[in-house]
Design a protein around this nucleic acid. Sequence first.
DNA 1: GATCGTCAAGAGCGGTGCTCTCGATTTTTC
DNA 2: GAAAAATCGAGAGCACCGCTCTTGACGATC
Lengths: 239, 239
Amino acid sequence: MTASRTARERVRAELTREIADLARRQLATEGAGGLSLRAVAREMGMASSAVYRYFPSRDDLLTTLIIDGYNALGEAVEQAYAASPPGDFTGRWLTACHAVRDWALAHPHEYALLHGSPVPGYQAPQDTIAARVRDVTVFGRIVSEAWRAGAITPPAETITPPPSLAPDAANVRSVMPDVPDMPDDVIFRALTAWTALYGWVSFELFGQFNNTIEERRTAFEHSMRLTGELMGLTPDSRA
Amino acid sequence: MTASRTARERVRAELTREIADLARRQLATEGAGGLSLRAVAREMGMASSAVYRYFPSRDDLLTTLIIDGYNALGEAVEQAYAASPPGDFTGRWLTACHAVRDWALAHPHEYALLHGSPVPGYQAPQDTIAARVRDVTVFGRIVSEAWRAGAITPPAETITPPPSLAPDAANVRSVMPDVPDMPDDVIFRALTAWTALYGWVSFELFGQFNNTIEERRTAFEHSMRLTGELMGLTPDSRA
DNA sequence: GATCGTCAAGAGCGGTGCTCTCGATTTTTC
DNA sequence: GAAAAATCGAGAGCACCGCTCTTGACGATC
């Protein structure tokens, strides 16, 4: 039932995929604004109006590209997580950070679609939100595992978050499995590290480091070590 | 000479300003992609072709908007700096952070133009880079003043940056007045705090905190306190 | 007062997203 | 197997865009 319905449905699924792939290639070369339904149709050898049989609007096409992008980024982070040694939490954190950065550098326009300014007239539908949590989940897993292993020790005289932030902390905690005892302080430290990660990648990709930071990869890793320290991760859990 | 040349030049300068203002208003309501030379011309009651006498292309108009945006943001940060008490460096850091966030929230589309994904076919010219450093300069001043006052004490067993990052650290140090003795470690801690600041604001503005972080301002301030700690700022320098 | 530079306006080019209609083809139903 | 229904591609067309070129009128200058 899932493999083959009518021939028409099969060719429809095929064409839909083909259009999306072509659009993604066009996105990679031209950028988000250069995405043109007419150009896709031209490259596929069909009339521009025919494309609307598969994607009711340009925004719908954009939405699938965004969802695919979140999934690709999430998968990259998941694979990096799976390939990193379980005991070394700082290593896992750094590996995951590099996975985000590497993917962003390899797919700059797609990253811009996900974490850049929203596309002009485009309003992201709810569908995209579900796919968005995929990379977040991995980071949450890393932090929660480290916490349960006792590898997170925030500074003694820590800055305690105000009580009004408890609900938000609970929201963040919900993406971390089995850490009901994690203090809000650690939650917000992890959140801050997370924003620093994407802040760095966005800065690097959007050109804010031009003529200033040249040893990008090394500087990035060092910065992520600092954010690891901010989270309270012990520098090397194997030592 | 600066006040009045011929009447023609005066009216020309006036119209140029008027076009830019109208474009900025259109940018605020429609977003970067919705900026249309034709719409501006329509609203000014002139033919679309006439606008090209003042801005040779849409990208040129965008460039002036970007430069104006950087200046407005920089000025907001400068004013916040000027209004904050000189002795309290953590306070100055937080005030400057809030200035960035407040300005971004008040001018979301302009912020997106500055720190979001680059506009489709637009290539930022060198002119924009000069205006960009204005806010950075303020942050550099805060950090360097704190350092000279002895209010920055990074953790004892710190993560030292690799020697290959020394040139980049020197680049960053160049925006900080009179701190030749500031260690590269502190430089990169400040840089990381800076990326965390803009990472947070971008996340908040671009919708990544939806359904997760609701007490935005409080959470932001707490996060910035944490980045202040990361820099080594003593929690309250007046105590 | 004639000349020259500047200006607004109009027409037009090629491009865009999107809609509608029409004929052809495939699937479903009887 | 034939008729009915659903689907599809193509074409024309709408309103918009950035941008160019030409034309005619206005203002400043000698």
